[in-house]
Simulated assay, not measured.
Amino acid sequence: MAVVALVALCVAFAYPLLTYSHNVLYREGVLLFTVALACLSAGALLELLVDVRVFDVTLRVLAYVFYAASGAVSVAATWRFAREFIDFGGDAHVDVESDEYVGGFENER
């Protein structure tokens, strides 16, 4: 049942990318997320085939390769979504003067 849900989600994400790609915001990130979901679905399907004794250990290893690829592509998709909000350069250090703030959890008597 979980494999069917994964495949359905993969199709649900892929359909707008294929038909309405000009309307999809962050197209590359959604595409990478869909590829990660497809790799996860392929790994789950291969592992299901191994569990019902259709194929041998080679397919189990291939399923784990798909799982690893899914993880790597998920990291790439996360980077595509977050890269606009991360700044590695410049003077990002902010000095905060703690003397001007009062209150909080301290007892003021």
Rank of each mutant, 00 (worst) to 15 (best):
V57A: 05
F66N: 06
E84Y: 12
L45A: 11
W79E: 03
A44H: 03
A77Y: 03
V52Y: 06
L37K: 02
R83F: 07
Y26W: 10
R80F: 10
D87G: 11
L37V: 11
Y26E: 14
V73A: 00
Y67S: 09
G90E: 07
E84S: 12
E28Q: 12
G89R: 13
T19L: 09
F88G: 15
E28N: 15
A76V: 07
L32R: 00
R53I: 03
D56E: 14
G90P: 13
F66Y: 07
Y26Q: 13
A63Y: 08
S41F: 10
A68W: 00
V65I: 06
E84C: 13
L32Q: 00
G71T: 00
E84F: 05
Y20T: 09
A38E: 02
E47T: 13
G71H: 00
Y20E: 12
A76C: 08
L49I: 05
L17A: 15
S21H: 09
V52P: 03
F88T: 14
R27V: 15
W79C: 11
A68T: 02
D56G: 12
V65R: 08
G90C: 14
L49A: 08
L48N: 04
V75F: 02
L48F: 08
L25I: 14
N23M: 14
A42L: 11
V54S: 06
F66W: 09
S70G: 15
R27Q: 05
A68H: 01
D91P: 05
V57I: 05
V30M: 15
R27P: 14
L45R: 03
A77D: 03
A69Y: 06
V73C: 01
L62W: 09
V61E: 10
H22A: 10
F33N: 14
Y64F: 15
G43A: 08
Y20S: 05
V35Y: 10
L40V: 08
R53L: 04
G43T: 05
Y26M: 15
Y64G: 04
F85Y: 09
F55A: 14
G43V: 04
Y64L: 04
A77S: 11
R80P: 08
R80I: 10
R27E: 08
L48W: 01
V30R: 12
F88M: 14
E47F: 10
A38K: 00
D51C: 08
T78V: 04
V24C: 06
E28F: 12
L18R: 07
S70D: 10
G43H: 02
Y20H: 09
D91Y: 12
V50G: 01
A82M: 13
L46F: 04
L17R: 12
A69S: 09
A69L: 15
A38C: 08
T34K: 00
L25C: 07
T58E: 07
